[in-house]
Design a protein around this nucleic acid. Structure first.
Length: 445
RNA sequence: GUGGGAGUAGCUCAGCAGGCUAGAGCACCAGGUUGUGGUCCUGGGGGUCGCGGGUUCGAGUCCCGUCUCUCACCCCA
């Protein structure tokens, strides 16, 4: 029988990778909780309809679906927002608002895997449902930054590029675009940053037949280019016609709130941010690695119509998703995965090679007794199964990444003392066994 | 889904123009130095050279297919 390989686009989490994954997800959870969100989760598969409803049938070939024995069309979840909407719709009248929920779902997409993009991954989802106040958008953005900052990514490493579907729609309509033609323009604008100028011009010419209209669009985009101005937001205010001003006031409040929260240096207005998804209705944003401007680690925005679209009441909502794959790449490149290291607190060694038992009178001074008492106190502790020289046992301790080696030797029996060795620095001190065991954490401080 | 590149031990790779039982370093395992490791010494296990087919007296080495990874498209909820 030949070996069977892991499925394309999936990952095996060996202990080392598992430690990284746990560390990332624990950071997400803590950031969610300290920003006042509570955790939820749903089933890992849903009715296929739940996903095709809002995104169209063609999305089916981007996800894994199957038919169960009852003939139901089901799909592995490619995102959790529809599940969230379904769950909230179910209990909307009994949930206190604002509903601030987060989740760390395992998601599946049948896309071609490439760097930073797999078929199975995790995504931190943070949403505020039931508030139309732009404060909710500000708090979501703050929460994302709060996490990134907590793992050592500064405003020099990442940038939150923010725009607004509402403002953009108003601007485009003012230029002369028809309401029902906006979707196509969004798609065009979404591709713009990735295309060379000529390619974009060509595509624009294809989609927007009216040359005058096309020129007005290009001129507007030119003037609002983030590179063209230090403060494109104030430029937007000056440039925007009367009809758009009301939307702009609310939009600039978003930046004001973010400034009050102390994260203004992470945030920029960027007219190029549109997001592919059709359901966004207000502010939209993406967080980018400043070193690799084509790589987004996080994306989100306001989606006020989605819950009603899935059969619920009209309830405003906003939120974002942050994937683990790109995030991990970014952290790894910057050497910021150090926090994920795992290891033992204590490795207990018997230098006398007795290991399992002293004489009956001394049995509470043997390795097994000491290890057990450390574990009872909540410390992680291990020992060598084999009777081998002290040097080998220390090697074991190092291999298991122990912070401290506790060495039991002749003094342990004679005088009730142990040697506690700092594995990182190499230093060692002798302390009373009972004193050590009564407060292991204090003793080694 | 479309195109380019890659695929030799767990990892990083070497393998000359096709020629004997396929190598190195690290890692792993065992033993040694009979009380101090991560930075000593000795030995060992482990590869149907991604997989399948073809050319050839003979293929890790050439050709075709396929799978996986990777880069660029498509898409990105």
């Amino acid at each position: 029988m030949a070996k069977i390989a892991a499925v394309k686009g999936t990952r095996d989490f060996y202990p080392e990778q598992m430690a990284v994954r746990n560390w990332i997800m624990e950071g997400w959870r803590q950031a969610g909780l300290r920003n006042g969100y509570v955790e939820y989760d749903g089933p890992i598969f849903e009715h296929l309809r739940l996903f095709t409803e809002k995104s169209g049938e063609e999305i089916a070939d981007q996800l894994f679906f199957f038919t169960d024995r009852g003939g139901r069309a089901l799909a592995l979840r490619p995102e959790i927002t529809p599940t969230l909407a379904r769950m909230v719709n179910e209990q909307i009248n009994s949930l206190a608002r604002p509903i601030k929920w987060f989740s760390v779902p395992r998601l599946f997409r049948a896309e071609k895997p490439q760097r930073g993009r797999l078929r199975e991954f995790f995504q931190w989802n943070v949403d505020v449902i039931g508030s139309e106040d732009i404060l909710a958008d500000a708090e979501c953005i703050y929460t994302a930054i709060d996490y990134l900052r907590s793992v050592g990514l500064s405003s020099k490493d990442v940038v939150v590029k923010i725009s607004s579907r509402k403002v953009l729609a108003a601007l485009l309509k003012d230029l002369g675009f028809a309401e029902d033609g906006l979707e196509e323009v969004y798609v065009l604008l979404d591709k713009r940053p990735k295309l060379p100028r000529e390619a974009f011009d060509e595509m624009a010419a294809e989609q927007i037949k009216d040359q005058a209209l096309r020129n007005r669009l290009k001129e507007m985009l030119q003037r609002l280019q983030p590179e063209a101005s230090e403060d494109s937001l104030s430029k937007l205010k000056v440039l925007a016609p009367e009809a758009v001003q009301a939307d702009i006031v609310s939009f600039s409040d978003l930046f004001y709130y973010l400034e009050l929260m102390g994260v203004a240096d992470y945030c920029e207005f960027d007219i190029n941010i549109v997001r592919g998804l059709a359901y966004y209705t207000g502010p939209v944003y993406e967080i980018y690695d400043r070193r690799e401007p084509l790589r987004a680690v996080c994306g989100g925005g306001r989606y006020d119509d989605l819950l009603a679209g899935l059969g619920g009441q009209e309830v405003p909502a906003t939120g974002f998703g942050m994937g683990d794959v790109v995030l991990e790449l970014m952290l790894k490149e910057r050497g910021l995965l150090g926090g994920a290291a795992q290891g033992l607190d204590f490795f207990v060694i018997d230098a006398g090679r007795e290991l399992f038992s002293f004489s009956r009178e001394d049995k509470d001074r043997c390795v097994l007794a000491v290890v057990s008492r450390l574990r009872e106190k909540g410390f992680s502790a291990a020992f060598d199964y084999k009777r081998q020289p002290l040097g080998k046992q220390l090697k074991q301790a190092a291999a298991q990444k122990a912070r401290w080696a506790v060495i039991l030797g002749d003094e342990t029996i004679k005088e009730g003392k142990v040697n506690v060795k700092n594995m990182a620095q190499g230093g060692q001190r002798t302390v009373g066994l009972e004193e050590f065991l009564s407060r292991p954490g204090e003793t080694v401080k």
